[in-house]
Amino acid sequence: MKKNDLFLLLGVLLAAFLLFLGLRLFSGNGEAVEITVTGDVLGVYPLSEDRIIPVADCAEVRIEGGRVHMAFSDCPNQICVRHAPIARVGQTIVCLPNGIAVRILGDGGFDAVVG
């Protein structure tokens, strides 16, 4: 047993801890939002830039401060507009009457989100 062995062990543990902290800080929140209308991809937009995206004359998606919400929709039930802003990978906002799906893309995150 040499002193270096102990240093190596502690070094690895420290590195793992720092990596864990780093990943925790940056993971989870998505990188982009994908908007599809009846299955066809309308576009993919980065979350880093604020943006107003009109969707097929019947709805409006907004990216604000890294979060996405449905600002407007002409659908009767307004479920999509009521949905809180989303930012985590796997989260979606759906407007069934208009066939619009707004989904956060990125690495890691969730395979499905219920709620």
Binding site: D5, V12, A16, F20, S27, G108
Partner: peptide
């Protein structure tokens, strides 16, 4: 093809170090 797996790395580094130390 996904970088998301990297989130398992810290834990696997620790378990690798510990089991390695015991084996050593």
């Amino acid at each position: 093809g996904t970088a998301g797996i990297v989130s398992y790395l810290p834990l696997l580094l620790i378990t690798g170090a510990v089991t390695g130390a015991v084996n050593g």
